[in-house]
Design a protein around this nucleic acid. Sequence first.
DNA 1: AAGACGAAAGTGGTTGA
DNA 2: TCAACAACTTTCGTCTT
Length: 312
Amino acid sequence: MPQSGYVKKCPECGSINLFLNREKGEIICKDCGLVVEEKMVDFSQEWREFDSEDGESRRRTGAPMTYTQYDQGLGTEVGRKADLYTLDNKDRNKFFRLRKWQYRISTAIERNLKLALAELKRVSSYLKLPKSVEEEAARIYTLAVQRGLVRGRSMESVVAGALYAACRRHDVPRTLDELSEASGIEKKEIGRTYRFVTRELGITILPSNPADYIARFSSALKLTAETQSRSIEILESAHKAELTSGRGPTGIAAAALYVSALIHGEKRTQREVADVAGVTEVTIRNRYKELLDKLKLEKEIKKTKKKRKSEE
DNA sequence: AAGACGAAAGTGGTTGA
DNA sequence: TCAACAACTTTCGTCTT
């Protein structure tokens, strides 16, 4: 066991006689009873530590190597049950089993965290998310574990939900579809846990801005910079015309991009745009129609059409 | 033949009694 | 807690290029 390099004083009485209750995830002053720290682990520190291997030897929790031991298998319960059924010498194994069980309970939260963070890291790197988002998601997940919000939900879905929330908070939104593909969790489930977790943790969720999606969709469709910036202008005027409220931001972004591509003679099919944005063609059509109606863009589209004809 | 269009029915979440 | 509702999807037939 690594020794504790965790030196902290109780802000109330100055005692250094602090007790770390890992099950509850609290640090309590033994002298005055104050709960010094409710966060179970300072996660961001652990994260960096694991990543940078800078060889500092004072570690609070288990060695990083154990991290990889827990495969992204199923939960701990499955393994425990399997143990029970494969025993043949009951008496001899009973004690051993109980001991194992006890050990597992006491480290359940920690193990859950390790497992979850491995998963989180995997999904995050799959989506090429920035470090700041990864850390935010880890923070959210850690909080969720502390509050017992994972109970009754799969760990993976909470990880996905935390990532989704973190992305939105950092204005680098990913669609639920992308999260779903990266994590292997159903879209509905991610949405559900996302909503649940953010509500329980009181995380404010401002609706994402369609413009945040433009850059990514645009590059996925290999559109030029002009088309991209034009679509952002369209979004702005759409916003002024109150065409955006209540609508799915991805649908709006997709439609703006579609129109903009038409105007610049870089036509993409509705299907292509729809796939990238993770909406259906129908939704694009609806938004597209609204844009044409309210923003009088038809002329520009016709203009480019004529231009192309005359070029032939 | 492929893309665009739009009607109709279905889904899951929100809201308000 | 439940029903009405808005946004979005799925499916499918028709029109346009």
